[in-house]
Simulated assay, not measured.
Amino acid sequence: MVRSCSIGVLDSGLGGVSVLKSLVKLMPNEDIIYVGDTKNIPYGGRTKEEIRKFALRIVEFLILNKCKMIVVACNTASIAALDYLKGHCNIPIVGIIDAGVEIVLDGGYKEVSVLCTPFTAKSGDHKRKINNKNKKIKVNVIGCELLCPMIEKGWETIENRDDILDEYMSHVSKTSEALLLACTHYPFIKEEIRKKFSGEIIVPSDECVREVYRTLRENSLLNENKKKGNVEFYVTGDVNSFKDKAEKFLKQKNLEVYKVNLTDIKK
């Protein structure tokens, strides 16, 4: 593997673009290949076996495209498939769960709430990992079935979005000092969430990307090229829908977005 190869980023859809934004900011000279599995979103209501199957197809695609490392920029996929993917991958691969956990542990909080998908909530991973290192931190976890698909569809187009968000936020403990956004889609509506929560809002993207940087450095894989890197986007569903939302979030135009059929991937 050579330094000039791309970093691969996978997500169930649009959410990982929030991680990509941090990645481009910290390492602007790196080439990136992003894959959003928009055909099979949301992962939050899927089984572990389904998520592993979908994620492995993306990993195979990224490896075929000569990626030097992979970022699982999806909390649900990180929980369901990260260790499984590592067993099928001969390049470095990192997830996003530990980034959020580390921020909570370093924050000196007595109580935090976690906003996430139903799959992530059911897994109990955030609570378990936080309390394994600090049993004194109270962790409240709220599974939000509708937020991810609403954001993917287009948050502004959902007439009752405020009522639905209010319902989920009503389960956030009033004594929580911080709210961890444990789904990479949620930063897209961070300002809406901020209106309903007075404490600190934790977005783990930057910490995840710092881990990517450390991993590349330790493996002597940092790109030494000084010119601006190229980002290519691949989706399994509608190209235009993804392109419009990604361009709006990144405040960029003319993103390269292509459709890919991952069932055609040959090892």
Rank of each mutant, 00 (worst) to 15 (best):
S123A: 14
H126P: 00
N140L: 00
G108Y: 12
I130E: 01
N75G: 07
K135V: 09
E111G: 07
S113R: 03
I137E: 08
I91C: 11
K110V: 00
L105S: 11
N90H: 15
I130L: 08
R128P: 00
G124M: 09
V94Q: 04
K68M: 10
C144R: 04
L146P: 00
I70M: 06
H126E: 06
V104R: 05
E111Y: 00
M150H: 09
L105Q: 11
A73S: 11
D98L: 12
V114I: 15
L82D: 04
I97E: 02
I103Q: 13
N132G: 15
H88S: 10
V112M: 05
I103S: 09
I137K: 04
G95V: 10
I91E: 12
D98Y: 13
E145S: 14
K153Y: 14
G95Y: 07
N132E: 15
K136S: 15
S123W: 07
K127R: 15
V71K: 01
M150W: 11
I70R: 05
V104N: 03
L85S: 05
V71P: 01
N140R: 13
N75T: 13
K68F: 11
K122A: 15
V112G: 03
K127E: 14
N131F: 06
G87K: 15
S113D: 03
I70T: 02
I130D: 02
C74K: 05
I130Q: 00
I97G: 06
K110M: 10
K153F: 14
V101M: 09
R128A: 13
E152G: 10
C144L: 04
V139Y: 10
F119N: 00
T117E: 04
M150A: 07
C116W: 02
C74S: 14
Y109V: 08
G108D: 08
G87C: 12
A73L: 05
T120P: 01
D125C: 15
P149D: 11
L85Y: 06
H126W: 12
V71S: 06
K136Q: 12
I97H: 02
P92H: 13
I137Q: 01
N140C: 07
N132A: 15
D83S: 15
P92Q: 13
I91Y: 09
F119Y: 15
V72D: 02
S113A: 15
E102W: 04
H126T: 10
M69I: 14
